[in-house]
Design a protein around this nucleic acid. Structure first.
Lengths: 341, 341
DNA sequence: TCGTAACAATGAAACGATTCAAGGAATCGG
DNA sequence: CCGATTCCTTGAATCGTTTCATTGTTACGA
């Protein structure tokens, strides 16, 4: 186990100055072919690998970007993370990933850690109220982009998805295939996403005469909660039933599908058309493939990185006041058998 | 946007030497209460945050551990990652996460990156043949622990789960509840996991007279593949059917469950008892809650970190030859309604 | 042949934290 | 009151890289 080689060792071995080795690494054009070859050979022979800590120390900042998400287990975030990593790699940065798990203290720990690492910038889906900390970070030259949360453009850049539009899209689709007695199934409306999607659905329903929207409260956003609501529906008399149901997420929709089809009293989509939200992997392989609303997670992750890069540039340019942008994406309708015909 | 404060700034502000500030940070006991207070106040007033790059540079190594997994989207790995992060945090290290996505070149990029970062050690679920690179890393003082792969103990430490035992557990359970005509559903046996689980199942069946095991090949490991196999089963005559089915993973089992229950010809568990593997979140909320084999992902992640810590210590102690250990975990049976009675 | 570019290579200084030998101050026993 | 001991504090040296002013070399036109 030998101490790993430094740039100095390489310089000695190749019989050049350390500055030359550095130039080979960073500005190959400044070095003659002959010297470059010698240096590269020395690097190879010694198995030299740059020490990033030293590089950072000199540069004053790292080539990494901090990303804090609410839950890496959630496919929505996994997909955002992947896109962000790819986009960052393209511009030569790496992503440090932190999972706050909806816990404000873990979130805070990650912010500390990232600050010690002198990350170039921070992408975050905040749990707690972190605006004070983010303001401080910005003062220190570390810009932030909020992810999956709409921000006041005068303060931060952000990327988010328009849940109201998504709700509209889902309800509009049910109306388009001829359904008029709609129902919205969603957990507590205190959750912003749930409320926004409902609002969009109401907007769509208001556009069509003789269409109605019933709101069914669910105890949560899980398969089991969906099954509960479904079991209540099944007990109703036929003329009291909705003919189109929009669930606030796919888990709810899948639970509901289970209770409706299990009893074999109601057929999907003939008796009740069903649409969910999120387009999780299981949607396509449900008993009846589930229509859903897909969120552009790749674009979300990619754009977050791009906005951050803009902010980094803006901070570097002493002149300009940083200009923030709030990018709002529009979700997309995915039609499958559960709303066919 | 002010340059962030250094330890020197803090020292000036508190009217002490830089060494003293460092001591406050690292060896608080060496410093008198009075001085400590002054320094802490200065730190607070200036909003000083340690520059980790400088610390690393001096220390020669970082306080981070590299972790490369095959797919962060896979719940198995997400869970391992979370456990590893928690365990690392306990010992004061942070985890850098890389997702190779089963791609050898991405894997290689992450190894490069982690090497530049001078990680303390590396946890990896390898895609390609990386033994050469790992050997090189070890020579440089960076130990590796293989994750979810059994390693030759003379070369590496590793943590893995005994798939043979898991297969045995599943089949044994079906036999215990009185089933005798078993079937194993699994994709190509070229996948080690699939083959090992089958082998374990065969071992259990061999222990019981008049018990038989039929192997049904599936086209993959997905819900759809499971449904296909299920549809073939449904067409069989009653006396030609298995009464207990073990699927190589939960997705297959869920697909099979769909096709069996959809037709309403066969009841689970009365006609066919069904058990999967992995215990994914959806298992518990299936139409008929699915029995499964759970892998101790938390223990896997935690132990990987512990083994790595051992290796790090061993490398630091110049004397001893590092001792590798291959820890093999035993999976656990989770009984639910799909194999009740 | 000389002067001037253009191009290459050099090596000291700087980044910010930690370490450690050395010095200073306070305390205690005799 | 002295010497020994303990306890604090100091600040220069160090880690490995990048930067940049300086020096050295070559080539070219006049």
């Amino acid at each position: 186990m030998s101490r790993s080689a430094s740039i100095k060792d390489v310089a000695n071995h190749a019989r050049v100055a350390v500055g030359t080795v550095s130039n080979v690494l960073n500005y190959p054009d400044r070095v003659s072919q002959r010297t470059k070859d010698r240096v590269l050979q020395a690097i190879d022979e010694l198995g030299f690998v740059r020490n990033d800590a030293a590089r950072q120390l000199r540069a004053g900042h790292s080539r990494t970007i901090g990303l804090i998400v609410l839950d890496v287990g959630n496919p929505f975030f996994t997909s955002v993370v992947r896109a962000a990593e790819d986009a960052a790699a393209l511009q030569g940065s790496a992503v440090l990933l932190g999972d706050s798990g909806h816990d404000a203290s873990r979130e805070s720990n990650y912010i500390d850690l990232f600050q010690e690492q002198r990350v170039q910038g921070l992408l975050i889906s905040p749990v707690g109220d972190v605006t004070d900390r983010l303001d401080l970070l910005r003062e220190r030259g570390v810009p932030t982009v909020l992810v999956d949360r709409l921000a006041d453009e005068s303060k931060y850049s952000s990327v988010s998805v328009d849940d109201d539009a998504g709700g509209y899209l889902a309800a509009r689709h049910l109306l388009d295939i001829g359904r008029r007695r709609l129902a919205y199934v969603g957990g507590p409306t205190s959750i912003r996403q749930v409320a926004d999607r409902l609002q969009g659905a109401q907007r769509a329903v208001a556009e069509v005469r003789e269409a109605s929207l019933e709101v069914l409260d669910s105890s949560g956003q899980t398969v089991l909660a969906g099954r509960d609501v479904g079991n209540q529906l099944v007990r109703r008399s036929a003329d009291d039933l909705p003919d189109g149901v929009f669930c606030a997420n796919d888990l709810l929709a899948l639970g509901m599908m289970q209770s409706l089809t299990m009893m074999h009293r109601l057929r999907i989509p003939e008796d009740i058309a069903l649409i969910g939200y999120d387009d999780i992997d299981f949607a396509v392989s449900a008993v009846v493939p589930l229509s859903s609303i897909r969120q552009p997670t790749e674009a979300l992750g990619r754009t977050a990185i791009e906005l951050l890069a803009d902010e980094v540039d803006a901070m570097a340019a002493v002149s300009a006041r940083p200009q923030h942008r709030a990018v709002i994406f529009t979700p997309e309708l995915v039609v499958r058998q559960s709303t066919a015909g």
